[in-house]
Nucleic acid binder design. Structure first.
Lengths: 218, 218
DNA sequence: TGCTAATGTAAGCAACGTCCACATTAGCAA
DNA sequence: TTGCTAATGTGGACGTTGCTTACATTAGCA
């Protein structure tokens, strides 16, 4: 929410980025319901109409905010996955399970840290996914596929895995975003969800225990 | 969305109910984002300001819509539970499990049938729960408590049950509301989620199988 | 050095949520 | 029944919003 500094030049040089930044900040602080295009333009020091050179409308700007957030999430997920993949100290099915736990951590933490972005992303769920969101989907699909490929779960459980893992983590993330999940218990919640669901999908107890040691609770 | 019939009397006699009805209909059809107080008042045939005799503001009206919906949901959940409780043909822990499955059915079906209400309820999640929502919370808490009391799950798993059962069903309901869960597979999804989570929480395979026969898939 | 396309401005439109002074009337006390 | 008061609805206004359109400025390239 940068204070409205008057520009000296007629052109802004990167209004699109500035709008994206400003919108993200304002959503973080006041929620997407309270977000106003005009206010944001005012804060940047630009006329209201200028935004329409870069975004079709308000919804389009917010969609861009959401997709940028998804892109960040995708980066975090990929980093977490790579950190596990690089460490060959465990059996493949243990690593596949550990990736689920790591994804859950990243996802739920993010929801707790940026609740308003999480809500905005949830409310825009019915539209076509942008590139950032698509990356996230691909990553989670890969995650599930690896559970099958490594033998952590039976192939026939793949469909069930799709209906349980991500939805359960999404539900927990919603709790975190709504303040119904204490920060101190956030990781405990994730552990509980991932253990429960993976166990329910047929992952061996031994693999679950090893997964736990692979990703310490803090 | 009743056609704007001019009233003959100055007073409406039950504007509050009429507004609630009209708002619910309009939310169902156009989503809560597109909902306009003025439009609704116009459709009822009343001036815009009249609404403020019954609701503090637009948000308050929508909150009332949400809580009325929660109240309906609570009725459906209670009915489903009672139907199972009345039938003493199975062991208590089987019935406790069956109630989870029945709750899931009711909840996810409702999300698929009234997606816009579901989204509205989700976006209003950070406020104090009204009486309807409180009833739903009490019902789900009871459901979890019965799992422990009947011995279906170990008492130490109660906290895990709180973090998994309802969040997982909520996540699946979101898929249903967003059209990502085909109507034809809705019940299959619920079955998968409930089986997986309950199994993960330690419910015996035998109880799961009996639960299934207690609540047929269609 | 100029031309063109990209980018910003200013003014204005219709609609919105909300408030206020006022009109109407329901329901109750005398 | 009559009259009073509180509840309920009206009409108009205010400020803000998203968005459009005609025009101004300027970046970048032939």
């Amino acid at each position: 929410m940068s204070t409205s500094a008057r520009r000296s030049t007629y052109h802004h040089r990167d209004l699109r980025t500035a709008l994206l930044r400003e919108a993200t900040e304002r959503v973080d602080q006041g929620g997407s319901e309270a977000f106003s295009l005009r206010e944001a333009a005012r804060a940047i020091g630009v006329s209201p109409g200028a935004a329409y050179r870069h975004f079709a409308d308000k919804a389009d700007l917010l969609a861009a905010v959401v997709d940028a957030d998804f892109a960040e999430l995708a980066d975090d997920l990929a980093a977490a996955r790579d950190a596990i993949t690089r460490d060959p100290a465990h059996a493949p099915q243990v690593r596949a399970a550990a990736i689920v736990l790591a994804f859950g951590r990243v996802y739920v933490r993010r929801a707790g840290t940026h609740p308003e972005r999480f809500h905005l992303a949830s409310s825009t769920g019915r539209t076509t996914p942008g590139p950032g969101e698509q990356r996230v989907r691909d990553l989670t699909e890969d995650m599930r596929a690896q559970l099958v490929e490594t033998g952590a779960i039976h192939p026939r459980m793949f469909q069930d895995a799709s209906w349980t893992i991500v939805p359960a983590l999404y539900g927990l993330a919603s709790l975190a975003a709504d303040g119904q999940l204490d920060d101190a218990h956030r990781d405990d919640g994730v552990r509980a969800v991932v253990h429960t669901v993976l166990r329910g999908l047929g992952v061996a107890e031994e693999a679950l225990a090893q997964m736990e040691s692979l990703i310490p609770n803090t």
